[in-house]
Structures are given as structure tokens and as C-alpha cells.
């Protein structure tokens, strides 16, 4: 059991310790951007859902307009944060 364990341990060590030996290779970029993109997608989905609810007659027009304004303001905040990340 010792020999196979040693061989497997060596193989695993080569895989696992590589980022510590050569850190630049495995560092995933754009961490914050990916989170913001996910938040933006979620907000857009909310805007679309609210519009669909209005068109289906489930939301009154004043309620929808108020909700839509609020959601768009939140989406714009996310877009601004994305712009800051892009250096604009």
C-alpha cells in the first residue's frame, strides 16, 4: 500500500502545489467583474419580470412605473460600478 500511496501522493502534490510554485498561471482574473455581471443579469431579470407582470395585467400601471424606476436605478448603480472597474 505504501508504494501506490507514494506514487499517488506525488501526482497529487504536483497538481495541488503548482499554483504556489507558479502563482501567476492559475490566478483567475476579473473576480469583481464576474460578480457584478451576475448582479446585473439578476437585476435585468427583475426588470423584465416586472414588465411582464404589468403586461399580463397583474401590476397596475402606477405600481409598475414606480417599481420599474427603482429597479432601473439599482441597475444603473451596477453599471456605474462596472464602468469604474473598466476605468471609464
Amino acid at each position: 500500500m505504501v508504494l501506490p500511496a507514494a506514487v499517488l501522493a506525488l501526482l497529487v502534490a504536483a497538481l495541488v502545489l503548482r499554483p504556489l510554485v507558479a502563482p501567476a498561471e492559475d490566478l483567475a482574473p476579473l473576480d469583481a467583474r464576474a460578480d457584478l455581471e451576475a448582479a446585473k443579469e439578476g437585476k435585468y431579470r427583475e426588470i423584465r419580470d416586472a414588465e411582464l407582470d404589468y403586461r399580463m395585467g397583474k401590476l397596475s400601471e402606477p405600481d409598475w412605473r414606480s417599481l420599474d424606476r427603482e429597479l432601473r436605478a439599482q441597475a444603473i448603480e451596477i453599471l456605474k460600478e462596472l464602468d469604474v472597474l473598466d476605468g471609464r
Binding site: L15, V16, L17, R18, P19, L20, P23, D26, L27, A28
Partner: peptide
């Protein structure tokens, strides 16, 4: 990040 990558691996 390099330790996070190592843990992931």
C-alpha cells in the same frame, strides 16, 4: 489567490 487556487485543485 494562489492558496485559494491550490485548495481548489
Amino acid at each position: 489567490g494562489e492558496w485559494a487556487a491550490s485548495a481548489r485543485r
